[in-house]
Design a protein around this nucleic acid. Sequence first.
DNA 1: TTGTAAGCGTTATCAC
DNA 2: GTGATAACGCTTACAA
Lengths: 339, 339
Amino acid sequence: MTIKDLAAQTGYSVGTVSRVLNHHPNVSEKARRAIQDAAIRTGFQPNVNAKNLKQQYATTILVVVKGTFNELFSELLESLQGFLADTRYPLHVDYMDEDSNEVLRAVQLCRERKYLGILFLGGNIQNFKQDFSRIHLPCVLITNNASSLSFPNLSSVYTDDRQAARCAADALIALGHRQFVIVGGDRELSDTGRLRYEGYLQSFQEHGIQFDATLDYRGVRFSYQDGYDATQSLLSIGRKFTALLAEADVMAIGAIRALWDHGLRVPEDVSVIGFDGLPLGSYLIPQLATISQDVKQLARRSVEILLNSIEQGGVPLHESIPFLLHQRESTHRLEENHN
Amino acid sequence: MTIKDLAAQTGYSVGTVSRVLNHHPNVSEKARRAIQDAAIRTGFQPNVNAKNLKQQYATTILVVVKGTFNELFSELLESLQGFLADTRYPLHVDYMDEDSNEVLRAVQLCRERKYLGILFLGGNIQNFKQDFSRIHLPCVLITNNASSLSFPNLSSVYTDDRQAARCAADALIALGHRQFVIVGGDRELSDTGRLRYEGYLQSFQEHGIQFDATLDYRGVRFSYQDGYDATQSLLSIGRKFTALLAEADVMAIGAIRALWDHGLRVPEDVSVIGFDGLPLGSYLIPQLATISQDVKQLARRSVEILLNSIEQGGVPLHESIPFLLHQRESTHRLEENHN
DNA sequence: TTGTAAGCGTTATCAC
DNA sequence: GTGATAACGCTTACAA
């Protein structure tokens, strides 16, 4: 069933059929009704390939989600949809693997159909540096800071990971802790890993706390198992510590289990704080202290900035959104007599 | 950059360019190299709309993933990719929200491009009943049993939820438990919920165990919070039990926290078993006993059945894959003196 | 081995 | 208001 068939059935030409289907003016009420009816009766569906091949103007906003099974993005997306529902812009969401190149994917999608602008949920700064110059639409990168790249059409809305990590360390220091270990992401591979690590160290320095990275830090992947293994490795070489800083909740969970298996209790023997604010955290025993991103704000500002770029143009913005510290049961004031 | 531009640049015609790009025979080595080079140099990417608009035959298998942020499907997909990597069939993965209609989405996608067959990761039997007749490709529904629908082109590979639930209850009964409560999905809304519930009851009957569904069963949503709330509700009306059957690990986690907040310990006071086998489960304290689907087998058989239907045709198959029981720390033998 | 041209299902620009 | 008709970028006979 094509518009040609529809034209034949109704006795009108393909031009008129197309005009009716796209709600263009200059069609008689009679033609409109006849064609509308036939379309419904036959269950006509336009061929999107032909449509996109031809169509020049855009109405849609593209959302590129990097990491299909990422809870943070799931929440973020829901928020974005909420904020954009009020506008007249439909959303097209494209999900991809963690390890695909989100920028090249966007380039590809832009060739396939026209968009007004792009929201990137997550992204790798390297990919942007290399390929973003091929995109000429207003874009917002969410959860990463893109200010260093200074592309004229790329804004970013993110959480200041360095500050957030500093805050986590500060909180534990305020509880009396002085002996730390860090279970983090690989500083070479992950921007996030590097920034959070720097934040912790900054806090240590400000409070005159000794820290030996070669002994008391592990840079691994963001997974339960890696959190478990890294902690076990720290324990096995006999490191003494009263607080463990994990750069992700999943790592913190693995770490807590490793401590348990080593006969150490959280928070009595070791305080643990994570990162991300997974919903899960507040059901665990003990409830997991953590730092979370402010998803609602992140979503709201991203939408505002993108719509503004689309409608008004102007220079790109790079905005940091305040994070949230959740002090929960997995941290504990260090008793004086403990050490 | 179009094939026309490529033709102009290399001095060949669009026909030759197209033939080179699609690895057709009857092109001179010289032309092949020249055009290949130009394509790489200019970063040429074919326009998929034009390609699909024209192309008649299919080479690709479509995978429709229902529920973007579902860990089970994440694992399943990885397995599927592994098994299909050996074949000559590329995969096209389409992710969608939990609440979209996966069948209509597939219908739509089939209009956009040609596929050899479809793998559905998850699906709602109602949607299939209503709309699947519009799909005429060989299909396999994974994780749900579609035998009752008897479509000539729809196979299914699934886990027998009823048996699995029975097995979970049997295991706890073997540990001496007699007083159960069930925290499950809504029996009206969810096939899975209904089947698992029936499995539990069947086990109860076989062992002569009294069970009052109006008092000792809660049908809610599959979430931490709903597991927590349902358990709290059971406790608040004073139900006495030594074992809690949860129809999902997330519910079990919520339940364990609710028990804890009520002063009850797992497994000392109450044994808990979940469903799904989330990786998380083995890091929890206590490690969560659970029933999991055999992801590898599910993936392997799905691929085998689909490829067979594509290549040989034949009648659809409906195969149940054995589940896996993981007895872990959250269950406990009931001491004689306890009751 | 290569070029030419028809046509996939649309939209958009003309005349009428 | 409406109907021809030329694109859009590609594949694929068919001719050369």
